[in-house]
Amino acid sequence: MNIKQYIAARAAKELKDSDIVNLGIGIPTLVADFIPSDVQVFLHSENGILGVGPTPDPEHIDQDLVNAGKMPVTVLNGSSYFDSASSFAMIRGGHVSVSILGVLQIDAKGRIANWAVPGKSVLGVGGAMDLLEGSKKVIVTTMHTTNKGESKIVKELTYPITSERAVDLIITDLAVFTVKEDGLHLIELAPGISLEEAQQKTDAPFHIAGSFKKGKEVTA
């Protein structure tokens, strides 16, 4: 299991039976591979599908059946199709249980930036703001630092904010944080990661939950 699969597997453990789940692009997409066999969730795709199934074999690709990342998918028994306005009414209306999203930055209050990069033309937002605003629970999955080694968890966002709504849970390759009124709370460290390393690589201040634990090896 590579590091991104590790993050995805950890996120999959948060899903509960009968959750309606929307998976973003990148690490979130991998979460589908790690959902425990005794947990049945229904994957929602904002382009108009409830009940997304696995990726098809190349010979079974249907050009009219893609997910929100425009990748070919299948549907499971019990699935349904709907138009975009209905799909976003489901999201805004609080009918999606969990969204798992990628992120560029997270601030000390758990608010995120995941749609635009400063200094570049802002020409795409897609469903990022809708999902963050409307989903009952939002989990972000991300590498803890950028390719340059900079912390993605910062005191204040330098990238444009996606929503004033804070996320609920942050899962990185190093640690897991919950977000409360008073900010970020470290609840778990990944195997082999010391508290010192997590502190050193996290620019934002965070609380250490009383019962924080060292993560166990997460297996699929």
Partner: peptide, 27 residues
């Protein structure tokens, strides 16, 4: 935002003068 866009089109076709959405507040 994609949901705001799709709802704005729906509103246009449904004879509405617009709507208030929480999406994008503060952005």
């Amino acid at each position: 935002p994609q949901g705001t866009m799709s709802e704005a089109i729906r509103a246009g076709g449904a004879g509405l003068g617009g709507f208030y959405t929480p999406v994008s507040v503060g952005t």
